[in-house]
């Protein structure tokens, strides 16, 4: 345990501390430890992991709804594209840039950029449609210089480089563990076809069992994307996601 005592100033202490304060101030006027980034003429370089505006790759999307489910702010709503698939739209009037969606996306369809300085005129414009998220958007850039924070054992200093920072992060999209949906108890299947209805890749089909004259559902592992929606919706809870061998 450490005790902290509060100082009790004598007149001499007061004079000393007055002088200390004044001399520190004077020193800073002469040789300031300035750390100002002159935004918008300069821009601070953000790390590659910076969580900013998100880009979307429709090729990789398996339409699993997980980004929408995980979004704490409910900013991601799935919108039906002309092809009938559902793709995410992001409402930047709600988005908190936690990037749970980016971490969630099993196909690696969502990726981060370093774009974060945007001002919208209306709230309606803040709902960014899927079509707008595919290509990197153009933002107003006035910066000619990039500022790096250099922290060494002495101090924080700014390193200025005359270049225009690339805001689009080039990192390989990382996919989740490949999974596939299987039925663990086909005997209990009541053929409600929910799995078929919810499946977007058309992996589920109904098979007539000729012997017992009943219909059972079958999942085609080749077509299954492992989105897990059928597992979630199955009314008998007999579907499981397992690792794709």
């Amino acid at each position: 345990m450490k005790k902290v005592a509060t100082p009790d100033y004598t007149v001499a202490d007061k004079l000393k501390t007055h002088v200390a304060a004044l001399s520190t101030a004077a020193k800073e006027v002469v040789l300031p430890l300035n750390i100002t980034t002159h935004y918008p003429r300069e821009r601070k370089r953000q790390p590659a992991c910076f969580r900013g505006f998100m880009l979307f790759d429709p090729e990789r999307c398996i339409s699993c709804f997980q980004c929408s489910f995980v979004c704490p702010a409910n900013a991601i709503w799935m919108k039906e594209a002309p092809s009938g698939r559902y793709y995410p739209t992001v409402d930047h009037g709600k988005c908190i840039y936690c990037h749970f969606c980016v971490d969630t996306c099993p196909g690696g369809a969502l990726k981060t950029t370093k774009i974060h300085d945007i001002a919208f005129r209306t709230m309606d414009e803040m709902v960014v449609m899927t079509e707008d998220m595919v290509e990197p958007p153009a933002i107003i850039r006035e910066d000619k210089v990039v500022v790096d924070y250099v922290i060494d054992k002495e101090d924080l200093t700014l390193k200025r480089t005359k270049e225009v920072d690339e805001l689009i992060v080039e990192i390989a999209p990382s996919e989740g563990v490949p999974m596939v949906s299987v039925c663990v108890d086909r005997g209990s299947c009541i053929a409600c076809k929910v799995c078929d209805k919810v499946c977007e890749s058309g992996a589920v089909s109904s098979v007539k069992d000729e012997e017992k004259l009943i219909v059972k559902m079958e999942i085609d592992p080749e077509k299954c994307t492992g989105c897990g929606l059928c597992v979630k919706e199955c009314s008998m809870q007999i579907l499981r996601l397992v690792r794709r061998e």
């Binding site: 800073e28 006027v29 430890l33 300035n34 100002t36 002159h38 003429r41």
Partner: peptide, 14 residues
Amino acid sequence: KLVGRMQWRVGPRE
């Protein structure tokens, strides 16, 4: 400007 300098920043400029 001077107080800005003392405070490690710039003060009015743009």
